[in-house]
Design a protein around this nucleic acid. Structure first.
Lengths: 246, 246
DNA sequence: CGTCACTTTGAAAGCTTTCAATAGGAGTGG
DNA sequence: CCACTCCTATTGAAAGCTTTCAAAGTGACG
């Protein structure tokens, strides 16, 4: 999943710190003490332009983050999944609106405390840096997708990115609507629908009940998606080092 | 200019530190001691996939940073201008190729030293953070542009972003080719050319000699560009605070 | 079992691309 | 200094892909 606003820490916090003599704290540990809150589907967590006061750890559910143009056109910048931390890469104000796609459970943390702790805990800084780098990387994947891929490539890239992120075997859950997908992929919902149908007709995917999709021919799909991190889940991706570069 | 990979520090290093009792070092000061190097137009500074060993301060000239798909399609992620720092937001490897558009002068700095200094100098950390946030912000502007704007809006948004960044009065310099612009805007060079002609015919811009363009009707252009930071240069943009959030 | 919201499908329209040719500009060499 | 060449930009026309507009289908929920 291209989540321009949040990046899985399950990846970023990996390896190097596990070997540390004393158990180094991970970023997500900071949220441990916070109480969980629940958002109903459709509810907003914060709005574009709001003072960026808090950071959120997503426990369950999926959110969409988006911006709206004056005339109503919507661009979804990403979908936020459990394990992602949302709200890091802002200065003063949130750059987009975050809204629950499904019911969502989150823990929140004041940004001041968050950054205060990071200041005091050198071990956390590389993790924060890793988050930001992963966000940039995802944003660039998305720019390539939006700028140079056709409708089919976009849809397939999306399916593969979901698979990479939360796929269980060959099945993936797409809790968001076709319109959400369209606004994320720079298409219309009709085009997304047509591409899904076409892929299914060709046996590359199978459309299951509810929001379930089965990726039937991964290799062929990867071929279609073109340049991507599509190879990353073949070999267990060597976890990106969450280390302060040196 | 949407530079997804580098962000002007002239903005980010502003206000808060100026008032500090003792002159706080700025990130760009780090490069002061480094010797300048020159790249000829077309020369690459580094390649996508190279180990990310260095960080660069651009003194003069313009670079393009891009990724290429297996079949040759190119997506330019941004243009890097003097005052930008290039190469910060990478973990292990450069995510794109950086190539000189014009002759370019840069200073380089080993990432290890760069991050070492940042570790030792708390005052630099907010600046680094600010760079990364600005990069994310620019990346999101670009995603909106690529996903939801039409050809004319893209071209106008681009002209305005250049104007905001390096505009002198109503004139702007576009050192890059139409193809560069096209690969940045997710269009073809023909479409870019047509849009420029159309804007000129309507008197919104004037195409000067060389790579010069005059923005004749800023208000109208801003109207066309739609949602952007187009208002930022009306009132002197309150420099984004380069402070560690608290 | 009816309603509402979302999805799929169809057909036409529209915008951008593709293919092709002309024009323009800069640099080179006579 | 001018002619020539090459490369980039512009312009035209047709093709193509995605969107738009519309209608039918599907599924969840009360």
């Amino acid at each position: 999943m291209y989540s321009q606003a949040a990046v899985s820490l399950t990846r970023s916090q990996a390896a190097p710190f596990a070997a540390a003599a004393e158990p180094a704290p991970t970023l997500r540990d900071l949220f441990k003490g916070q109480s969980a809150e629940t958002l109903a589907a459709g509810e907003a967590l914060f709005w574009e332009g709001d003072p960026a006061g808090q950071i959120f750890d997503v426990i369950s559910g999926v959110l969409r983050v988006y911006r709206i143009m004056p005339d109503g056109r919507r661009a979804i910048m990403g979908f936020i999944h459990p394990g992602d931390v949302l709200g890091v890469s802002f200065q003063n104000r949130y750059l987009f609106t975050a809204e629950a796609v499904t019911e969502v459970k989150i823990r929140r943390f004041a940004r001041s405390r968050f950054f205060g702790l990071i200041n005091e805990t050198p071990a956390l800084r590389p993790q924060l840096f890793a988050i930001l780098c992963d966000e940039m990387s995802a944003a660039q994947d998305q720019m390539l997708l939006l700028g140079r891929k056709n409708a089919e490539e976009r849809v397939v890239s999306f399916l593969l990115s979901v698979h990479r992120k939360v796929g269980i075997g060959a099945d993936i859950e797409l809790p968001m609507s076709r319109l959400d997908m369209a606004d994320y992929l720079g298409l219309t919902m009709e085009t997304v629908s047509r591409m899904m149908t076409s892929l299914a007709r060709r046996g590359l995917i199978a459309l299951g009940a509810r929001h379930t999709v089965t990726l039937r021919k991964l290799a062929a799909l990867r071929e279609i998606a073109g340049h991507d991190a599509e190879d990353e889940d073949i070999a267990a991706a060597p976890a990106r080092r969450a280390v302060w570069p040196h």
